[in-house]
Design a protein around this nucleic acid. Structure first.
Lengths: 227, 227
DNA sequence: TACTTCAAACTAGTATACAAGTTTTTTAGA
DNA sequence: TCTAAAAAACTTGTATACTAGTTTGAAGTA
């Protein structure tokens, strides 16, 4: 488990939530492993209470499964939940990129452009940095459309998806996501909703290809279909 | 505050969450009022802990606003958050009703039909019962499409919307929602995605009309636009 | 050795106690 | 009476203590 210092602006609960989330997404906490409240509390120098509350929130998205009086199971990579997370993101964000064509102001376009340049810079250098920029790019679309509450809900579910993207960035060589993002950006800049829509859907379709590769390489982390 | 007995299958935290939610949506707890953890804990015969955790979860959807060391504010009716909740529901459920045309089995159609008959029965008799059946109808669409995790996320945000629907059912006389639901059902039964889509969008558009009526009648509960 | 039983060592859920910050009330002073 | 400062009475955040249930492992029995 990777522990970063506590940000002065965050509460103990927020600190615990952020740290656990980061470690689950980065796979520093392995899918299928058990984590104890006391164990994490000790590592973070906190009591059980804020850790308990953080795990409670994480359990809402089923990224962890609290087994009362037993422990806290970090979920295996579950293709059904990833499917749901993808469905939600594709559905919501497809609608958003169309709206963004109308709503994006000059400063919004500037911000997206800056983000894209950083993505291009870090493309082959730092996968984790790229992932953070990717997330920020998508988040900006929500911000442009004044849908930050939706972003919170979608991002909570996206953790299932993010964990796999984390794998993907490290194992899949041929990355097209940055050029995808630029195509989406250009469509928004040209205020062309149809182009934005198709560029976004092309972007999200790419994942289908990667899934087969990931299944092969990380079989041990992938849940058996329950049916 | 209306207190129902604790269901034997639910934990104290779930009991607190359910009770507080129900009272916020039914407006038995007034928008803009302050509620204390201790106060609610005493009413429910619990300690602060499970109540605290329930309020924490509610704060994630911004239906309550926890002010540290001050108290817990039940949010005013906020048109921006309602807009977001509606956007999310319309976007997600429009996609779902299309999919449902393909995925609905005989037993699913049977279940929807039964629900519809109950809706028709309670239409002019019991607004709260009707609201519950309405929610169950929409939830069934998620179930048919295997998207229950999405349902949880959407429903958490929908509380803003639900609170207004609760007003609407009591104050708006001309209710078309049941016939809307039947139109959606018939489209799914005929496996006609285009018809399902348009029936659903017609259903959700209806709310625009009611909003003006609600604003007039319940002005005291509606937040000032912050901008 | 293999199986049972029971106790000890874990787990999370919840109650309580205290810490830290805000609001309200009281009191002192003019 | 009015103002200002201090203290008391609140609030939530967090730590700790206890409860209840699960797992584990050792002791006892065949």
């Amino acid at each position: 488990m990777v522990i970063t210092p506590k940000n002065s602006s965050e509460s103990n609960r927020e600190y615990a939530f952020r740290t656990i989330s980061e470690n689950i997404i980065s796979l520093d906490i392995e899918p299928g492993s058990m984590i104890g409240e006391q164990e994490i509390a000790t590592m973070l120098g906190l009591s059980r209470t804020p850790v308990h509350e953080a795990l409670l929130e994480l359990s809402k998205s089923k990224i962890v499964d609290i087994l009362p009086q037993k422990g806290c199971l970090v979920s295996m990579i579950d293709s059904e939940l990833i499917r749901e997370a993808r469905f939600l993101r594709i559905t919501v964000e497809t609608a958003l990129v169309e709206d963004a064509c109308e709503l994006a102001k000059e400063e919004d376009l500037k911000y997206l452009e800056d983000n894209l340049e950083l993505q291009e810079f870090y493309l082959s250098k730092d996968p984790d940095k790229l992932l953070a920029l990717d997330n920020e790019f998508h988040k900006s679309i929500y911000r442009i459309c004044n849908k930050m509450q939706c972003h919170y809900m979608v991002s909570l579910m996206s953790m299932h998806f993010d964990r796999v993207r984390s794998l993907s960035l490290h194992s899949v060589k041929d990355l097209k996501i940055v050029s995808d993002h630029r195509a989406i950006f250009e469509a928004i800049k040209k205020k062309d909703p149809a182009a934005a829509r198709s560029a976004f859907q092309k972007h999200m379709a790419r994942f289908e290809l990667d899934w087969n590769i990931i299944c092969r390489e990380y079989k041990k982390y992938i849940a058996e279909p329950s049916r």
